[in-house]
């Protein structure tokens, strides 16, 4: 065999092995990411369950106790940004991503319900925004809407934004959609119980938000409010 032909074969084999190694390494890194996501979700799940149990056991749970658990919302935000990154890397149709999104949505719903209870008990008036989007190509304005919500989250830290993939197959989410009578006209927003469909910039959302209840990012955060 001529040396150049042998080298062509060898180079092809090595390149294939390197490509395989590259994909394997990348998968390992993605597995680590997924493991961390599961870890955070487990932690949040346990925290929510613990808080709920305390609620059920001790009707007299003080607002001070709740303050200690208010770190939950920032944990949810951490999870959201990691999940979005992973979804972008692995694709929205990846089964692992879908499973994680389902769990995340459940955690969001539980946190939403819990925070409603907390608000009632402690006399707080937080602003809840439920945001429904789709990744299936039937929502042209969803990317822009997501960007607007990022801006709102950073500007008004007390705003409690919960994002849901409208087409995700979970019973609790379907119930939430039914209860709030949300039509498949996306993006859809539920702001303090009222559904809005045609909000496509920050200004129009800010007009609806009760800004008097929301301090901007330079002001003390929710921990202070809960005290």
């Amino acid at each position: 065999m001529k040396p150049y032909f042998r080298n062509i074969l060898l180079a092809f084999i090595i390149a294939t092995l390197l490509f395989g190694t590259g994909f394997w390494l990348s998968n390992q890194i993605n597995d680590l990411r997924l493991a961390e996501l599961r870890n955070i979700q487990d932690r949040i799940g346990t925290d929510i369950l613990s808080l709920e149990t305390q609620f059920d056991l001790l009707e007299s749970l003080s607002c001070q106790n709740i303050r200690e658990n208010s770190v939950l919302s920032s944990e949810l935000n951490t999870l959201a940004s990691r999940l979005a990154y992973t979804e972008n890397a692995l694709g929205s149709q990846n089964e692992e991503v879908k499973a994680l999104k389902r769990q995340y949505s459940l955690l969001e719903i539980k946190d939403y319900l819990l925070m409603q209870k907390v608000s009632g008990k402690c006399g707080l008036k937080p602003v809840f925004v439920l945001y429904f989007y789709s990744n299936e190509g039937d929502c042209n304005k969803c990317e822009t809407a997501g960007h607007v919500l990022t801006y709102l989250r950073e500007t008004y830290p007390q705003l409690r934004v919960y994002s849901f993939d409208y087409h995700l197959d979970i019973g609790a989410l379907k119930t939430l959609i039914t209860v709030n009578k949300i039509e498949p006209r996306l993006p859809a927003f539920v702001i303090n119980g009222t559904v809005h469909y045609d909000l496509d910039d920050a200004e129009s959302i800010e007009k609806i938000l009760p800004l008097d209840k929301l301090a901007t990012s330079s002001a003390p955060s929710i921990e202070k409010e809960l005290l």
Binding site: Y151, D200, D201, A202
Partner: peptide
């Protein structure tokens, strides 16, 4: 995206 939020953001 730039059109829907303030330029400063």
């Amino acid at each position: 995206n730039a059109l829907v939020v303030p330029l400063s953001f």
